[in-house]
Write a protein that binds this DNA or RNA. Structure first.
Lengths: 334, 334
DNA sequence: CTGAAAGCGCTTACAG
DNA sequence: CTGAAAGCGCTTACAG
């Protein structure tokens, strides 16, 4: 019952050498059908499963990838891991999870991950700064380990990345609100600056300027409980007839404040979010949001990484996935 | 730069044998201070990091645990992984992530995970049936690999598990609603039956019976979009003055329907959920919910597992963490 | 306190 | 098509 049969046991029981057993597992076409079947039968009887650690050492391939994440509790991260996991299963890769927090030394952490002998790395973090992207690139390239950024907006065209066009998405959602005849359109962004939010702000600003409107970016915390009092006082001194949250949770939080201050959404105020999470669906009124295909970003990143690890020809290492606006009750739609 | 120095390189450069280098790393107290410092210096200069795969093969310990999850996108799973990851880091364990879906053969999947040579396993899934718990126990015990169930309610007292007392929590929240003078109190549960929800139903039923009220369990889907039409027709033929959702998202979804049907929450109808997720905080009115310390469940499970892996004395392998009710606007509180 | 040697369980040229 | 042998990079008794 207990899975402790080794390749020697199989070889012995099948009357072949361990090299043959290994071939049956890795290059079955090189083994005579008859022999192969005999070995396979013994493998089954003994419940033999190759020790992946020994295999990893001998072949110098672990068929394991490292997934580096920051905040596990972000719903986008979890969903991306879902996509990664499904594709990893399909291609028989295992996933090792590494968490990097704000006070981690990225370079040191990466060296440790390299020492774990992963075959490739997926970096999931939309909050990376450009400098951090550079460190990742340098360390992993020098160790010759393939990597893909998932949902990281990096201006460096040489790093493999799968994402959406955040600037364009933001432009479009801003345009939608402008088409509502809104004038005082706020973008509710985060205090901490990082690449994807910067792009959202860029797209917003461009749309506003194109429409000869004044861009107004209001910065708050990413934490729901902290930004609430922030929003409470927002309405004291500001005119606003539209708002875009860089995350759904921020948009919903703002919407709740607005409604409690007597605003009618969508008649007095239209609101939209980013990500199309469950928060958007559970809000009342339901929130219009940019759907970001996070699951797909994960899946496509993993698929791209498998190609790189297997040294297949890769036509394009910068992949932009399509986004779309999901219209709900927080905006007025035809 | 590239991290390819081996233990031989270090030994050579330091003028010692590889056994000594190994000792400096694993049993530094057994090496003379002078020698140790010389070796350490070389290690630093060469940027040497031991190959964890080779170490794993030689020592038969991989300092890696397997975390088995079902649906990554459940927010409780992600948060639990956060707790696991923090403790794993602290004790220098890596985490391999394995996904098991409804159509996975659990036994086969477990055998594959065993072949990955993990030192221990954490099973995170509140949707396991009792039969599945038995399979897990049998396979892992026969392979002598320590495991802990995180947030799985198993009646089998012999399996190590960290959870909360769901029956009691459910009793308490039901009691809270009864104290609101509610009579028609519904429990909104899921169609698929599994252990934790069964306990919630038990606690609810017990509280209702103790108060001489009729228990009414309404089963719906776990999927927000699917249960919505379900709730729309709910109000056609039912009297209800209180409801408990087995998950926050179900409670919020129900609350939205109720409000759209002209109900005033909390005056006509009081509502509570389970889990105290961000959904509860972002709902309007905010949702009263049982706080389940998922992060802690993850952290404590991992800590327990480290003890088991290191064969430390473990006083108690069944750990019940405290829960509490977080009072918000969907109930009337003093 | 340190070194020589065996071994962990595989893969992979190399011969035949 | 198959086997013998070396080797992957470590750890761990065993001697000394």
């Amino acid at each position: 019952m207990s899975n402790n049969a080794t390749i020697y046991d199989v070889a012995g029981a099948a009357g072949v050498s361990l090299a043959t057993v290994s071939r049956v597992l890795n290059n079955p076409e090189k083994v005579k059908k008859e022999t192969r079947e005999r070995v396979l039968k013994v493998i089954k009887e003994l419940g033999y499963r190759p020790n992946v650690i020994a295999r990893g050492l001998a072949s110098r391939k672990t068929t394991t990838i490292g997934a580096i994440v920051s905040d596990m509790t972000r719903s986008s991260i979890a969903e991306m891991l879902g996509g990664i996991s499904d594709i990893a299963d399909k291609y028989k890769y295992s996933i090792k999870l590494f968490t990097i927090t704000e006070d981690t030394d990225i370079e040191d952490a990466l060296q440790n991950i390299v020492a774990e002998q992963v075959d490739g790395i997926l970096y999931l973090n939309d909050e990376l700064t450009d400098e951090e992207v550079d460190v990742v690139k340098r360390v992993l390239t020098s160790n010759q380990i393939p990597f893909v950024f998932a949902n990281v907006a990096s201006p460096d065209e040489s790093v493999p990345a799968v994402s959406i066009d955040y600037r364009k998405a933001s432009y479009e959602i801003t345009k939608l609100l402008i088409d509502h005849d809104a004038k005082d359109i706020y973008m509710l962004s985060t205090r901490r600056r990082y690449s994807t939010n910067n792009l959202k702000e860029d797209g917003y600003t461009k749309a506003m300027e194109d429409a000869k409107l004044e861009p107004k970016i209001f910065r708050t915390s990413g934490d729901t409980k902290i930004n609430r009092p922030h929003f409470e006082s927002f309405f004291d001194d500001k005119n606003v007839d539209a708002a875009i949250g860089v995350r759904d949770s921020i948009a919903v939080s703002f919407m709740n404040s607005a409604i409690e201050h007597g605003k009618d959404v969508p008649n007095d105020l239209v609101i939209a979010g980013f990500q199309n999470t469950k928060y958007a669906e559970l809000a009342r009124p339901r929130l219009t949001s940019i759907d970001i295909p996070v699951y797909d970003i994960g899946a496509v990143s993993m698929r791209l990484l498998t190609k790189m690890m297997q040294k297949e020809e890769v036509e394009e290492t910068r992949i932009i996935l399509p986004h779309q606006i999901v219209y709900r009750e927080s905006t007025k739609n035809e």
